[in-house]
Amino acid sequence: MPDRFAAGDRVRTGTVDPPHHTRLPRYARGVCGEVVATAGHHPLADERARGLPSTPRAVYCVRFAAHDLFGEGDHAVVVELFEDYLEPAEREVRR
């Protein structure tokens, strides 16, 4: 499957709080950020942790403004996220 996103794309992270292992940190859920790079292709950690078969998919470095994550701060945080955690963010919606 081709990658869904590329550097420069705006994305929004999921809000689901799964009952199992995941690599989408709570602080980075439900926020918009920008893809800065593709960081390889890997099986989904959520599936591997449960002993499920998993095919490689894209993993991205996504940059967030601290203000969007925490409501304060002038820094940026880049989080490495599996494609499954991301949806396109067509337009900026301020929370």
């Binding site: 292992h21 950690a45 591997r48 449960r50």
Partner: peptide, 11 residues
């Protein structure tokens, strides 16, 4: 076990 199962067990 694999690394994700190990992390899961810690969590």
């Amino acid at each position: 076990y694999d690394l994700d199962e190990f992390r899961d067990a810690i969590e």
